[in-house]
């Protein structure tokens, strides 16, 4: 919004190209390498977070408008809760009873 748009959607095209690279990169690392399961999950998990960032900042313009800061805090809180729910559930339910 800050820059007056000209005829070419440059940031969208860049975002799309990066998304494609990250998608094929993740698939290639997961399916074509001999790295350990843990290493692969850390790498492709990071790639997924990067790609989500591209969507949020380059396509959804998360920081745009007078509520931009509120949006960022809201989504960060959502992500924090998501991590607590997912990691917490797996931790409690799959490691607790095994010991």
């Amino acid at each position: 919004m800050e820059k007056i748009m000209k005829g070419f959607p440059l940031s969208h095209v860049i975002g799309f190209v990066f998304s494609l690279i990250l998608t094929f990169g993740a698939a290639g690392i997961a399916l074509k390498t001999d790295l350990s399961f843990k290493v692969i999950m850390w790498i492709i998990g990071s790639l997924a977070i990067m790609q989500a960032g591209i969507q949020l900042f380059m396509f959804m313009h998360l920081r745009e408008g007078e509520d931009g800061k509120t949006n960022v805090l809201n989504i960060l809180y959502g992500v924090f809760m998501a991590v607590v729910i997912v990691a917490g559930s797996i931790w409690v339910l799959s490691s607790g009873h095994a010991h």
């Binding site: 809201n74 989504i75 809180y77 959502g78 809760m81 998501a82 997912v86 559930s89």
Partner: peptide, 20 residues
């Protein structure tokens, strides 16, 4: 945007169940 925050939580619960 606040609704999307709630949607993140919805999908987080389903990812949590799947992860378990």
């Amino acid at each position: 945007w606040i609704f999307l925050g709630a949607e993140i939580i919805l999908f987080a619960t389903l990812f949590g169940v799947y992860g378990v």
